[in-house]
Design a protein around this nucleic acid. Structure first.
Lengths: 234, 234
DNA sequence: GTCGACGGGATTGTCAACAATTATGTCGAA
DNA sequence: TTCGACATAATTGTTGACAATCCCGTCGAC
């Protein structure tokens, strides 16, 4: 949990701190609505306060964190409506990307994908949530990166980041991790076989469980007394 | 061209400065590859350097500006490949949004749209590029905002911002502005008539001219000697 | 003449002290 | 007890000074 940044330009340290905080959020170390105090984080991560400040600003832009002037930052909790909206766009974008991947996939892509998938499987096996998270991210980056449009990939990743706050539920659950691993394997098969319809369908299915688990968790664990549980929507 | 920010929280001042720089880029005051010196901007906009710094970080994240460590920021120039990629995604997202707008559009939306369109028409008539730009932005925000998914709208706006750097070509051209005005009018008609196919087609068509003008301008005016003109793609 | 060392100037990056703001706790009066 | 005024602590926001870095022109050695 200790930062390993000794000599680096600030920009990199900021990214590093932001990434670290993001992981802590995904892994459930930092829970929604939890306060993020600048000085405390600065000391814990062994950086100066202004670096933490910039990192928090970044995370706010991404949508993982909420900042209120003069009051500080907290881990953002999405309400179910927002989650559904985000997943709706994710589905459209990932479908779009999947449709543009040249099939059958190149050996380069397949090799890298299989390597990453291997790491993911190992991480799942050993219940290493952090490693699983990283491998999972890299799997999707590689997969969608194959579509050839970096700007599309950027959007897909940005949307994935937004719902990271809810990830702590699925990121540690063995069933979810195992399911994800199997679905990844199926995607690689579809890529190799050049079966576009199956690939697209798999990408779409892949989103469902995490979305539903997230929404369920919000309603079960983080619901505010008096908070309105909104109706489903597009 | 003078900032009118007297008393405000820093966050707002940062947004204000970022918006001002964005406009100067769109209007051609700041050209691609032009340097953005922090102290100079700070003095010109009557804010502290630290505010300019944050604003530049924002614009970098958006993609309007490029920052190199220890060397500062410059207005980013997209190459034709990137422009095509971005417009490709824009088309997909705007189509998606247009398909989700409830038809026929509500009176509220139509009224606001017509009001904004009116302002846009006036601005075009009087060749007020800045007002036209603002009205244009607001028109699209209102239009796509009607789809009901704020996250989708956010993505659409973000992509539009990315290509602002090239906007200086079309933002001042009377033909382009006039064409945009007419197309906006047609969109409002389609919305009122509940003609989804026409609406979607119009949104798609609306993107073409600015994209082509941008690419042409890049190749004609900003091409680097020795720069490779890439083939069309995606 | 070309190349590398060197220095000055311009610009960005870093920092810690200070100011401003908000939250929290205490006390007294009704 | 309950409420509000006030003081105090915790935290964020702001600033200017200083350090580090890079660009560029100059000069000297080969």
């Amino acid at each position: 949990m200790i930062a390993t940044v000794l000599k680096a330009q600030t920009a990199e340290r900021v990214r590093s701190v932001a990434a670290m905080l993001e992981e802590e959020i995904v892994l459930g170390w930092l829970l929604p609505r939890e306060r993020l105090v600048e000085e405390e984080l600065a000391e814990r991560l062994a950086v100066k306060r202004h670096v933490v400040r910039e990192a928090l600003a970044d995370l706010e832009r991404v949508g993982l964190v909420e900042r209120i002037p003069n009051r500080g930052a907290v881990v953002k909790l999405l309400d179910p409506v927002e989650v559904r909206q985000i997943y709706s766009v994710r589905e459209a974008l990932e479908t779009l990307a999947a449709q543009q991947i040249p099939l059958p996939a190149s050996a380069t892509v397949l090799d890298e994908l299989r390597a990453v998938q291997q790491r993911h499987a190992v991480a799942v096996e050993s219940a290493d949530a952090r490693a699983a998270f990283r491998a999972n991210m890299q799997f999707h980056e590689t997969l969608f990166g194959a579509c050839g449009n970096p700007h599309l990939v950027e959007l897909i990743q940005g949307l994935a980041q937004k719902v990271h706050g809810a990830r702590s539920i699925t990121a540690a659950s063995p069933e979810h991790l195992g399911l994800a691993r199997d679905e990844h394997a199926a995607m690689v098969d579809a890529l190799a076989a050049g079966d576009r319809d199956r690939l697209v369908a798999l990408c779409r299915q892949h989103l469902g469980p995490s979305r539903d688990a997230y929404i369920a968790a919000i309603e079960a664990r983080f619901a505010r007394p008096g908070a309105v549980i909104a109706a489903p929507r597009g």
